[in-house]
Design a protein around this nucleic acid. Sequence first.
DNA 1: TGAAATGTTGGGGCG
DNA 2: ACGCCCCAACATTTC
Length: 497
Amino acid sequence: MTSPSPSNAPALLWFRLDLRLNDNAALVAAASRHEVIPVYIYSDDEEHSAAPGAASKWWLHHSLVALAASIEERGGKLIVRRGNAGEVIDQLLRETKACGVYWNRRYEPTIVKRDQAIKESLKAKGQIAESSNSALLFEPWQVATAAGKPYTVFTPFWRNCLSQGPPAPPVGIPKTLRFPGKWPHTDTIESLGLLPKLSWADGFPKAFTPGEAGARKRLKEFTLNALGSYADDRNRPDIEGISRLSPHLHFGEMSPNAAYFAAERALQSEHVAPAQAQSFQRELGWREFAHHLLFYFPHTVSQPLNVGFANFPWAQDRGALRSWQKGETGYPIVDAGMRELWHTGFMHNRVRMIVASFLIKHLLLSWQEGAAWFWDTLVDADLASNTLGWQWTAGCGADAAPFFRIFNPILQAQKFDPEGKYIRQWVPELANLPTKFLADPSQADPSVLAAAGITLGKTYPRRIVEHSFARQRALEALAHLKMANRGQAIDPHMNHA
DNA sequence: TGAAATGTTGGGGCG
DNA sequence: ACGCCCCAACATTTC
């Protein structure tokens, strides 16, 4: 197959969740044949479940600013528009006389549908409509079981991926990048209204630098400082043990290939033990698995994969939900996590599992409530990963933790934050409490609490539910569910396919 | 990528 | 010396 010959007409490069110039397949394809008109279209109205939440909008704003600047450095311009994507594209094609559109694929159900319609419409008009993969190491349809079905268990999924040979190494920015002499009108990034009216995002810049350069710097620091002990430290919120690359990967400021090969290079050059590098690559594998599941089971965005959970009697308790959201549950590790989330738009993964387990199993609130809060508050909110993560915790998803696996927030704190450094950082009103009582202030004598300046119920909340009671209640709810399903559909080891 | 309950083992204190 | 008990440490089972 020969590639189309270079044309005089420019082409639109439609940026979406690929806000970078390096290792960008659509950019490579467009730049090899055309003058390029970079475009970003903000169309949250039509994206529904995939439309960015408040924290993501903050990130998106800054990422767009960074992308526009690096395009301008190369003599180009990022054209920004707001509205229905198909209509904006048609409008731009008329304005610029462009011959078509290049973009990188997304996998959210509403986006897949929309993009298919746009592609068909363009092709029907004889225009170029070329999509590429620049978001995944392995696209959903590249991986299948021996029976030709999608995977629902992670380990065989990832084994299959790795057996296909190494993913494509990342490539740089195209050497020849031509832009048109005349530009269409562009809205300002500010006019998209992505930044919050109130100042709740003030703490975000301390934790993150959105944009391609920030992503590259983060990857470098991670591979240098933390990759070598990743398998050991990745569960420790009190240690700088994780990559923090998730928002950069979500917005496509870095390709998963770049992250994968950074670990691969460290491994090959023997700077890092194989088990440590592979542990990081495995986490990239979970991201792949999440997209695989989202593509083949699109309804899981709102519905449990395991149909046995469809009628689970989740509690309706706005007060309890509010306490969880604000980090006022009376369990310090839970509250620390929820406050880290609020102040930075991020939460350590180990703590995500703890707070999620608490919401679902201690409070019996639905995983959908938790997913919605995470969606609005996380800068790395990703429909695939968020859906997988919450269904995993609830025990209703693919390869999920069984419902009876209930995290003890006190033991988890003692195990993964042994000196209480993480709790003291995010729950400062407990900072003077001896470490021994930090995971569970209710065990401290009144004199000890008084010496630390703490009054339970006043300066720090009492536990909104007692652990052993909540555990028992959750187990009973599961027993009822089993009964209702006659023991059939909720076996944790069932095959969901 | 749990926790709690239950079972088993073996060392040591002690009559 | 011996049996008995206690209980920590570890293993297994159950939820």
